[in-house]
């Protein structure tokens, strides 16, 4: 009897430990990851987004937050995003790993601030790639959809970075395979190849052709060139202006993430722009 009880307790304890390890205790656990100060999301959209961000953040051990404001209050978008991140206290672990997406409606500016491990996860090229997709929705006013896309990409990027090779300039996420377009293009190419192949097969049936010349009947060595005169007549010179070299070209990007320091002295990465 006692033996059974002891066994039961040990099993229970092991189960408890298991549950504990699945939900690691974190400083960021009770944080709110959506602040819709600009009130551009409906209540249900806000709740859905919040659930999604909470789930990603806890699962990936990295805060993913979205903040919308009416105005930047004179600050730069970068400073506003960095300060909000630091002051509110986002971030997992010692480094404060996390990413914050700030949207300001009056300036129509967006900024993404990354910190800690997130700086490595979200490279400059990687963020540009995400925002290329997200800005389309932002411009169209589809804010909920924009944030959902953003969240999905964050999830994908963190998973990718865990393999040791974060998305960067030389390897960005795969675009979805354009089935229909490829189907049509392949079919057209195949048809052209088939047309050529059958044309060759058809050509084998035809062997009667008239001969254009009489080359076979020129007496060997009978050709004599008695007159050979190359008279120069005149020349024309055309000149074309060279195109101006584009001097304001950026040096080529070598990938990775650029960082800066926020007002509190913390190191942040990120990217910003208008929509």
């Amino acid at each position: 009897m006692k033996k059974i009880e002891k066994k039961f307790i040990s099993v229970f304890f092991a189960l408890f430990l298991l549950i504990l390890s699945a939900f690691p205790v974190s400083a960021a656990d009770d944080l709110v990851r959506v602040f819709d100060y600009a009130d551009i999301l409906s209540d249900s959209e806000e709740e859905d987004l919040l659930n999604k961000l909470d789930e990603i953040s806890k699962l990936q051990q990295m805060d993913v937050a979205v903040v919308t404001v009416d105005s930047l209050e004179g600050k730069s978008a970068e400073a506003y995003a960095d300060d909000f991140y630091d002051e509110y206290g986002y971030g997992f672990g010692e480094e404060g790993d996390g990413i914050l997406f700030l949207l300001s409606m009056r300036e129509r500016e967006w900024h993404i601030s990354t910190k800690g491990y997130a700086i490595a996860v979200f490279t400059d090229a990687g963020l540009d790639y995400i925002m290329e997709k997200v800005v389309v929705d932002l411009k169209a006013g589809e804010y909920a959809s924009a944030f959902t896309t953003f969240a999905d990409y964050c999830d994908d990027y963190i998973t990718q970075a865990a393999t040791g090779k974060p998305y960067d300039i030389d390897h960005l996420p795969n675009e979805p395979f354009p089935f229909f377009l490829f189907f049509v293009v392949c079919l057209v190419i195949a048809f052209v190849i088939a047309l050529i192949a059958t044309w060759i097969m058809k050509g084998k049936l035809k062997s009667v052709k008239s001969r254009p010349g009489a080359d076979d009947y020129i007496k060997d060595g009978s050709m004599k060139l008695t007159k050979k005169n190359d008279l120069f007549l005149y020349r024309h010179i055309d000149r074309r202006e060279k195109p101006k070299e584009n001097e304001s070209r950026n040096s080529s990007h070598s990938g990775g993430s650029t960082t800066h320091r926020s007002s509190s002295g913390a190191t942040h990465g990120g990217r910003g722009g208008k929509f």
């Binding site: 009978s222 120069f232 020349r235």
Partner: peptide, 21 residues
């Protein structure tokens, strides 16, 4: 500053004979 293209024009004459058999 410029690309130049010079086109020279010629009048070429050829004369001779050959035998067909």
């Amino acid at each position: 500053r410029y690309y130049y293209t010079e086109t020279s024009h010629f009048l070429v004459s050829r004369g001779g004979n050959l035998a067909f058999e």
